[in-house]
């Protein structure tokens, strides 16, 4: 484990370099340990694929070095915790291609496959939520078939519609809100992934399993 500063308000605990199962389990175990017993002065925790980032209030933690020493102790304790259960299976309906997924053709060209083969591969796989972030409720999904890996767009779009399903590098996910975004858009879901007034406000939680279910444009419009 290496610790490094993220600006002057956070410290990144890097738990591995590869997005492999062992690293993911370490990230989840450390996150659970921290959430269970928050160290004094820690204001926020951001688990992601290979790291856990801890935001702190400098006035409360004393110094960066002191916090790092404390976090090393926490990480040691977390390593001895039992692994997590698999999480729920959540099905997400997606209308692929055309105006719902304007980059499906580019992804197909990059993979040297047909659009139908891309849809079959994307909806055939089972994914796991490795982090929620970017915007509220956005799931970072592990398990994208290697053939579908596609670099992010050179310039991010200034507006991606809510529900857009995209591929960015080795990752796939769903945009819960209309935001800027740099991923290749291959489809769109009619489901709402973030609802501020509900508890919890996010449809998905870290650790959930996800499958995409292809639907037609007609079914998309009728979905309410």
């Amino acid at each position: 484990m290496t610790l490094s500063p993220l600006g002057d308000t956070a410290v990144v605990l890097a738990l591995g370099h590869e997005m492999d199962e062992a690293t993911i389990m370490r990230v989840r175990a450390l996150t659970a340990a921290l959430e269970h017993n928050l160290p004094a002065g820690v204001t926020d925790i951001v688990p992601a694929f290979t790291s856990v980032t801890v935001f702190y209030d400098l006035a409360q933690v004393g110094s960066y070095e002191q916090l790092c020493a404390e976090l090393r102790t926490w990480a040691g304790r977390a390593a001895s915790r039992p692994p997590f259960e698999m999480g729920r299976l959540v099905e997400i309906p997606v209308c692929y291609g055309d105006e719902f997924g304007p980059d499906l053709g580019e992804v197909a060209a990059h993979a040297n496959l047909s659009a139908a083969e891309i849809v079959a591969l994307h909806s055939g796989a089972e994914y796991r939520v490795h982090a929620i972030g970017f915007v509220p409720g956005f799931p970072y999904l592990g398990g994208l078939p290697a053939k579908l890996h596609t670099p992010r767009r050179a310039t991010p779009r200034t507006q991606v519609p809510a529900g857009a399903v995209g591929i960015g590098g080795a990752q796939t996910g769903v945009y819960p809100l209309a935001t800027p975004g740099g991923w290749n858009l291959i489809g769109r879901t009619p489901l709402a992934l973030f609802r501020a007034q509900e508890t919890p406000p996010t449809l998905l939680r870290m650790g959930d399993r996800v499958k995409f279910q292809p639907i037609t444009a007609k079914e998309f419009v009728a979905w309410k």
């Binding site: 993220l6 997005m19 694929f49 790291s51 970017f134 970072y140 992010r152 050179a154 310039t155």
Partner: peptide, 15 residues
């Protein structure tokens, strides 16, 4: 691999 960013982070997209 995507990781935490914060207000003040200077990031560089491919452009």
């Amino acid at each position: 691999p995507s990781a935490a960013v914060a207000p003040g982070t200077v990031q560089v997209p491919p452009d």
